[in-house]
Design a binder for these strands. Structure first.
Lengths: 144, 144
DNA sequence: CTTAATTCCTATTATGTCAATAGGGTTTCT
DNA sequence: AGAAACCCTATTGACATAATAGGAATTAAG
C-alpha cells in the first residue's frame, strides 16, 4: 500500500521547480538539492515532460521549468501520471477487465471507499498548497 | 498502492466465517467457496488464528470459527494484521526510523492526509457492515 | 568552429516482495 | 487404526522496483 519512489520523486521535482519559478533549472541542481540519483531522475522528469507538465530547454545552459503556475497542478495529476491509478485493487482500475465476482463481492465496497477517500485528498491538494505548507514549516523552524 | 492478496483474502476468510456463525468451518470449504488456494489460505488464517480473531479446532471434523461477533471486527484490524501498516510512505509507519528531512519536507503532509483518510475508512467499517452490503446486493440481484 | 554542458533515449541489472507450491508433522474423531 | 483436518517451515517462479550505464543529440559560449 505504498507510493513508489517514482511518484514521490516526481512530486519533489515539481516542488523544486515551483520553488524556482522564472528560472531554467538544471537537473543536476535538482538532484543535488533533493539528494536523488540524477540518472534516475532523468527517467522520471521525461514523463513529466511528455505530459507537458514541464518544459525542457536542451543544450548547454538548458534545464527545466514549470509550464503552468503551481496552483494548476494537483497532487493527483502528478501521482497518477507517474504511478498509474492509485486504486487499492485491480478491479477498480479504470478500464479493468470486469471481475466475474463483482455482482456478489461485498469486500469491493471497502476498496471503493478507500479509493474515493484517496482520490479526494490528492485531487484537492495542489503544488501551491504544498508550497504554502513548506513556507509555514520554514517559518516555524526559526522559533526557539 | 495496492492491497495484496494476503489482506484481501483475510477479509474474505473473515466474511466467509461470518456467514457461518455457529458452525465449525473447514478450510477446504472456504477455499472452495472463495476460489482460493487452500495451502495459501492456511498461511493467512494462521495469522488470524494467532491474533485470536478466529478459533481453530484440530483433528477430524475440525475447522474454524469467529471468536467474536462480526460487528467487533473492523476492516482495519484485519488489514493491519495481515498487511502491516497501510501508510503510503515508510516514514509514516509507526516506530519508523525518524526521517532526516522531516522538518523541512512538505510532501509528507500529503501522505499524512492520505494515511488519515485511509485509516478513517477502514476503522469505521466492520465485517458486519460488509455483511449488510452483501445482503443488499443479493436482494437487488433478484430484481429484474 | 570547437568544446563543454546539458537533455534525450534505451538497455541492463540487482534486489526484494508477492503469491504461491510443497511436503511433511500433529491432533482428534469415528 | 485410519482418515480428516489443522499446523509448521522451506522453497520457488514471476514480477516490479529502483536504479545504473552508456552513449546520442542539441545548444550556448568562447
Amino acid at each position: 500500500m505504498t507510493i513508489s519512489t517514482k511518484g514521490r520523486y516526481a512530486l519533489r521535482i515539481m516542488m523544486d521547480l515551483a520553488n524556482h519559478i522564472g528560472e531554467t533549472v538544471k537537473l543536476k541542481d535538482i538532484a543535488a538539492r533533493q539528494e536523488i540519483s540524477e540518472k534516475y531522475m532523468e527517467q522520471i522528469i521525461a514523463v513529466l515532460n511528455k505530459a507537458g507538465y514541464v518544459r525542457s530547454t536542451r543544450g548547454a545552459q538548458g534545464g527545466y521549468q514549470l509550464v503552468r503556475p503551481p496552483k494548476d497542478y494537483t497532487v493527483g495529476m502528478i501521482l497518477r501520471l507517474t504511478e498509474g491509478s492509485l486504486a487499492p485493487v485491480d478491479c477498480l482500475v479504470e478500464n479493468a477487465l470486469p471481475c466475474e465476482r463483482d455482482g456478489r463481492c461485498a469486500t469491493v465496497e471497502i476498496y471503493k471507499r478507500i479509493y474515493d477517500a484517496v482520490n479526494n485528498v490528492i485531487d484537492t491538494t495542489t503544488i501551491q498548497d504544498l508550497l504554502d505548507i513548506e513556507q509555514e514549516k520554514a517559518a516555524n523552524s526559526y522559533v526557539i
